[in-house]
């Protein structure tokens, strides 16, 4: 495992910590897109189904998968229960049907294998690449975002951005390629790039 992969995974963990910390300290979920959070839960559940049969392969991967599914479910639980009064569905209006539909079409057309787990894996990769759009859309509508929300989005974006040099290293040193993950990862990073630009220049 190279430094970029570890950096990416740590960045992902940090983003989760920032999000939960923000909600717990402010006792609200203002500025957080519920739709994006639901999309992430769908992403993790459909991708990490393999926990059921690859659990023994890598303790590291398995632990991270459990953390990602668990924290994502917990975030949604908090938004639906403890902090529900602070969630405003009127500003969280992105049409996620198109994101889910588009990801499903891509997954069905170009999986590595036409098996349930491979199609779901591919679906999760495509869906992850666009899952931040409701959040970015909400940010654009409200104009001003809390600093902590921008830190969250930055850390989440940095995670997939760091996977790109990881894939380059793996291609050079391990002859590893994963075209679906790489193309989707590049799209994901491009979607964040405008945000990264604003983050750095603000």
């Amino acid at each position: 495992m190279n430094i970029f992969r570890i950096g990416g995974d740590l960045s992902h963990l940090i983003s989760i910590f920032i999000l939960l910390h923000k909600m717990r300290t402010s006792k609200s979920c203002i500025g957080i897109s519920f739709k994006s959070q639901v999309l992430y839960l769908i992403v993790y559940v459909t991708r990490y189904l393999d926990l059921l049969w690859t659990f023994q392969h890598s303790t590291y991967n398995s632990l991270m998968k459990i953390i990602f599914i668990g924290s994502s479910a917990y975030t949604i639980y908090l938004m639906l229960n403890d902090f529900k009064p602070t969630h405003d569905p009127n500003i969280d209006t992105f049409k996620v049907e198109y994101l889910i539909g588009g990801s499903a079409i891509l997954a069905l057309l170009f999986p590595y294998k036409w098996t349930t787990s491979e199609v779901l894996w591919s679906f999760s990769i495509w869906l992850e690449s666009v899952a931040i759009l409701p959040q970015l859309f909400m940010l654009q509508r409200t104009g001003e975002a809390e600093t902590i929300t921008t830190h969250y989005i930055f850390a989440l974006g940095a995670y997939r951005a760091l996977y790109i040099p990881n894939w380059l290293c793996r291609y050079l040193f391990e002859n590893f390629t994963d075209p679906i993950a790489i193309i989707a990862g590049i799209i994901q990073t491009i979607l964040y790039s405008d945000f990264f630009y604003i983050y750095y220049t603000k």
Binding site: R5, D9, H12, D50, T54, H57, S58, N61, M64, K65, F68, Y112, K113, E118, W121, Y163, N166, E174, N175, F176, T177, D178, A181
Partner: peptide
């Protein structure tokens, strides 16, 4: 390595 049945990334 590279076997699509065993994705080793997150």
């Amino acid at each position: 390595k590279g076997d699509p049945e065993t994705h080793d990334e997150l």
